[in-house]
Write a protein that binds this DNA or RNA. Sequence first.
DNA 1: GTCTATACATGGATAGAC
DNA 2: GTCTATCCATGTATAGAC
Lengths: 210, 210
Amino acid sequence: MSAETREKLLQGALRTLTEQGIAKTSARSVAAAAGVNQALVFYHFGSVDDLLSEACRYGTEQRVARHRDALAAISTLGELLEFGRRMHEEERAAGSVAVLGQLLAGAQTQPRLAEATAAGLSLWVAEVEKVLVRVLGASPLGGFVDAVGLARAVASSFVGLELYEGVDPQGAERALDALEGLGELVAVVEGLGVVGQRAVRHRLRTVRRL
Amino acid sequence: MSAETREKLLQGALRTLTEQGIAKTSARSVAAAAGVNQALVFYHFGSVDDLLSEACRYGTEQRVARHRDALAAISTLGELLEFGRRMHEEERAAGSVAVLGQLLAGAQTQPRLAEATAAGLSLWVAEVEKVLVRVLGASPLGGFVDAVGLARAVASSFVGLELYEGVDPQGAERALDALEGLGELVAVVEGLGVVGQRAVRHRLRTVRRL
DNA sequence: GTCTATACATGGATAGAC
DNA sequence: GTCTATCCATGTATAGAC
C-alpha cells in the first residue's frame, strides 16, 4: 500500500534523525528504520532531502496539535511557565525537539531543508505567540515586551537547550531552572500593583530614550 | 612542517563545518579546504571525529580569548546587554557559533564529539558566568537569579538563535530585539530603589513557597 | 507499488613510495 | 611528514523484474 509505506518512511526518517543525527541520516538508514526497501525513498519522495522536508512538516504538525487545546486554556504567565516546562519535558521525550535541532543544523547549508524547517518551527512559534499575546496583552508589561519576537526567541532557545542537554545534562537542567526563576521574576513584576508598575514603566521609558 | 599542516587542518575543519555543515564535513572536504592531502587527517589526528574535537577546542579558545578583557571590564547589566549583542554579531560573522551548532548536532550521537563540544561550550559559559556573578552579585536581584544556570541558558540559547537565523533571518532579528527588551526590563527592576526591590523580594518569596 | 540489481560517487582508512 | 594508490563501506539514484 502506498500511503502506509509513505507513513513508515516519514516515521522512519524522524526516528533516524533523533537516533543517528542528520550526518548519518540516509536513504538506507531511514529505509532500514522504516522496514522497507531503500529505493522506495526515491519513488515516494524523489530525494532524501524531500523526504526529510515532508517528515519535518508531518512530525511537527502532530506534536503541535497535541498541545493546542492546553495552550488555548492558558491565561496567566504563571500557568504558562508551568505548562512550558511540562511540555518541554514531554517533547524532549518524544524527540521532536531533537528532530528540529538536527534539521536546523542541516538546513544551514540546504535551502530546501531550510524552507521546511522554518515552516515546522513556525508552527510552534505560532502557538507560543498566540498564548504570549493573550497573556502579555492582559498584563501591564504588554506594552514593553514584544510577544512576536519573544515567541521566536523561546522556540529557538528551546532547540539550543535541547542540543546542549545532549552534551551536558546537568548544565541544561540548571539552565532551565534559572530561566524558570527569571520567568517568575517577570511574573512578580507583573503582579506588583499600580505603584510599582508605574515606577517600572517610568524607568523603562527613561532607559529606552538613552 | 608538521605544526603548520596541523593548523591548516584545524582551520579547514572549522571552515568546512560553517560552510558545509556537519553532514558534509569529511576527511576529504576538510583536507580540500585546508589545501593538504586527505591522508594527513588520519596521520595527524587519527580520525575525522578526533580532528573535529580538537578543532572545537582550538577554535573556541581563540574566539573566547578575543573577548576576555572586554568581559572583565563589564560591571553593570546595561553594559552587559549592550556588549552581548555586539559580541553576538561579531561571533556570528566569524562563524564560531555556527561551528558550535553543527558540532552540537553531531555530538548528540557521538560521545567523543559530545565531550569536546561540552568542553568548548564550557569555555564560553565560564566567561559569561564570571560576568553574571559579578553583575548580579552587586545587584539586589543576585539572590533570586542563578548566575551559573543563567550563563548556561544564555550560551545554549545563542546557539539556538544562530541556527534559527539560518532559516529565518527576520524572525531571529526580532527574537533578539525582544530578548534585549526583556533584559532591559530586568535592568530596570534592578534600579527600582529600595521600596520597589523590597516589594519584588517579598512577592518572589511568596511565589516560591507555592 | 515494491523489490532486486546495478551504476556511480563519496567517504574512512591503510600501505608503501618518496 | 607528505603523497599516491588502493580497498572497502556507505550513499544516491535509476532500470527493470515481479
